[in-house]
Design a protein around this nucleic acid. Structure first.
Length: 140
DNA sequence: TCCTTGACTCAGA
DNA sequence: CTCTGAGCCAAGG
């Protein structure tokens, strides 16, 4: 019924690396959504290449971020990435307990519907934050 | 080689 | 608020 169709970024490895770089900037106690991360990658891509962004980046970016998280290195705070509804999305069937515990340990609270209030906990980096830290959004 | 299986989001009904 | 459809690929068994 819901054939989760996928597509992939032109360069999966490079895309994943950029996603991880961004996720590493999320401070403890804050969260970001897949879509938010995807937008940052798009911004970086546009700035780095000057080329227009293919529509697929907008349509599939969030899922590519999910794919990147599925293979992230140990130093990436994967638990701080949640879905746009403020809920934890985990791989099919697996519990979200671990991710929730990690977030609660950082001070993130969940409501009765297992949701995080993004108005409070969303990571809202300013352009300055991104450029002053070490996100090499511009490829090289 | 064929078949299954995905850490998503948004608009519209 | 809930539910559906669209987006249309690649790694692993």
């Amino acid at each position: 019924m819901n054939p989760q169709r996928y597509t992939s970024p032109p360069d999966r490895a490079a895309y994943n690396a950029r996603v991880w770089d961004i996720v590493r900037q999320i401070p403890p106690g804050k969260v970001a959504t897949y879509g938010q991360i995807a937008s940052m990658v798009i911004t970086a891509q546009a700035a780095g290449t000057g080329d227009p962004i293919p529509a697929a980046y907008h349509a599939w970016g969030a899922r590519w971020v999910g794919g990147a998280m599925a293979a992230c290195p140990a130093d990436v705070p994967w638990q701080r990435v949640i879905n746009s509804q403020g809920k934890i999305s985990l791989r099919k069937g697996k519990g979200s307990t671990e991710q929730r515990c990690l977030l609660e340990a950082e001070g993130v609270e969940f409501d009765a519907h297992d949701r995080v209030d993004l108005r409070i906990y969303a990571w809202l980096p300013s352009p300055q934050d991104l450029s002053s830290k070490r996100i090499h959004l511009l490829s090289d």
